[in-house]
């Protein structure tokens, strides 16, 4: 062990130092959010601002919940809406995207190239440009104030399909042929071979789909006029914009910021480990 330590070269020392510094720098926002949420009011307005909290307090959260209980719709309703919508969207996006990607990656059929090009093309649209057509479609099929109205717009995820097509086409065709000879049906091949091997890619798309849907306010703003159908992200957002300039608003904002951030972090850590694990252990080839 000691002998191994001695063999560390100056280059390695520099490398580790640089990367540690870089990692510390990149994690600053997270540190800030974590500390900020627990700062008492006087520390929130400190100038120059500090990263670390001196006298941590939970009063910001108290304020947030106090504020929430005064609202017309209970806080729990927003939480439920968010969790429900995110869960359902995530599951549907995974199901739809993996199935579409499997077929696009591994089967030959007419207009396949055209479909692939269309998917690539749709990657280039900024979200703003599709806002109005999306609104027209949602109102046209009367999905206002329904959960389907939350889920449907994010269901077709070109970026997810695009990534999965790339990943699944790396899976050797021989595996599927072996499974066909073994007697697996198309569904069998998909669920037993393709899905398990695509876990790293599925984890990746889950992370950004979650982040997109969890933080989305547009759907609640545009398609949900009924306050009981709106999500946590919308609530927090409106809270912040309503209270931006008041002193009390800063407390609530800091707490809400953390509250919105925590699930992202959890999901990321959860799936990121899965990404690494499968990449290390499965070794497709």
């Amino acid at each position: 062990m000691i002998r191994r330590l001695r063999r560390i070269t100056p280059f390695q020392v520099i490398l580790v130092t640089v990367f540690t510094a870089l990692a510390a720098f990149m994690s600053l926002p997270i540190v800030f959010i974590l500390n900020h949420a627990f700062k008492p009011t006087n520390e929130l307005f400190l100038f120059p601002p500090r990263f670390f909290v001196q006298n941590p307090t939970g009063s910001n959260f108290e304020q947030l919940f106090l504020h929430a209980t005064n609202a017309t719709v209970p806080f729990s309703r927003y939480v439920f809406n968010s969790v429900f919508v995110v869960a359902l969207t995530l599951i549907s996006v995974i199901v739809v995207s993996t199935m579409a990607a499997y077929v696009l990656a591994k089967y030959q059929f007419h207009f396949k190239q055209l479909i692939l090009s269309l998917i690539t093309l749709s990657l280039m649209f900024a979200p703003e440009t599709v806002g109005i057509p999306r609104y027209l479609i949602i109102s046209g099929i009367h999905l206002h104030n329904t959960y389907l109205g939350h889920i449907l717009p994010s269901l077709a995820s070109p970026i997810a399909v695009f990534m999965l097509v790339g990943f699944i086409s790396q899976i050797p065709g021989e595996l599927m042929e072996a499974a066909r000879i073994d007697g697996a049906s198309h569904i069998g091949i998909f669920t037993k071979i393709v899905l398990p091997l695509a876990v790293p890619a599925i984890a990746t798309i889950s992370i950004f789909t979650f982040q997109g849907v969890w933080g989305d306010v547009e759907t609640s703003t545009l398609f949900m006029q009924d306050e009981t159908m709106r999500t946590l992200a919308f609530y927090v957002n409106s809270l912040l914009s309503g209270l931006q300039n008041s002193v009390a608003g800063q407390n609530v904002a800091a707490a809400a910021g953390l509250l919105m951030f925590i699930p992202n972090l959890i999901i990321f850590l959860l799936f990121q480990r899965k990404v690494l694990e499968t990449m290390i252990h499965s070794g497709i080839k």
């Binding site: 021989e174 072996a178 071979i193």
Partner: peptide
Amino acid sequence: FQNYALYPN
């Protein structure tokens, strides 16, 4: 198969 084609999972 030449590349064994074992199911890695």
